[in-house]
């Protein structure tokens, strides 16, 4: 349940940027390989945002697919786990996207 701590971080960062404005919407980018479950973040968000400028804000989550680059042949492959195997047979895959855990933007009143 690291999503609770992570959601607390999200609320803290947005609160800091919002200052005295109320937050209408928060957009997050969560990669499929980030080991963070969007549904768990949604669940925690309602609890963590209570009594903050984010209370009742809409939470938008953009899930980025995992992609890797084969370190042997350079081919790009789709990853649904933090590891994989390239068609060339190599298991040396560097993850190039899907690990994002980022607050993209917020909409404030």
């Amino acid at each position: 349940m690291h999503e609770l701590g992570i959601t607390r971080n999200i609320v803290a960062i947005v609160t800091e940027h919002a200052g005295d404005r109320r937050v209408k919407r928060v957009a997050l980018e969560i990669g499929k390989l980030s080991a963070v479950m969007p549904d768990a973040v949604r669940f925690c968000f309602d609890v963590c945002s209570k009594d903050t400028p984010l209370e009742d804000a809409e939470l938008e989550i953009l899930e980025t697919p995992g992609r890797g680059c084969c370190l042997e042949c350079g081919a790009e492959i789709a990853l649904d786990q933090p590891f994989g195997r390239c068609e060339c047979g190599s298991a040396r895959i560097e993850c190039i996207s899907g690990k994002e855990l980022r607050i993209k933007e917020m909409e404030v009143y």
């Binding site: 992570i6 999200i10 960062i13 855990l101 980022r102 607050i103 993209k104 933007e105 404030v108 009143y109």
Partner: peptide
């Protein structure tokens, strides 16, 4: 400006890494 923002909202780009700290 604030009344306008109160209706439509103002989008602020953050691009903040949640684990940055």
């Amino acid at each position: 400006q604030q009344v306008h923002a109160a209706v439509h909202g103002t989008t602020v780009t953050l691009e903040a890494d949640v684990l940055a700290k």
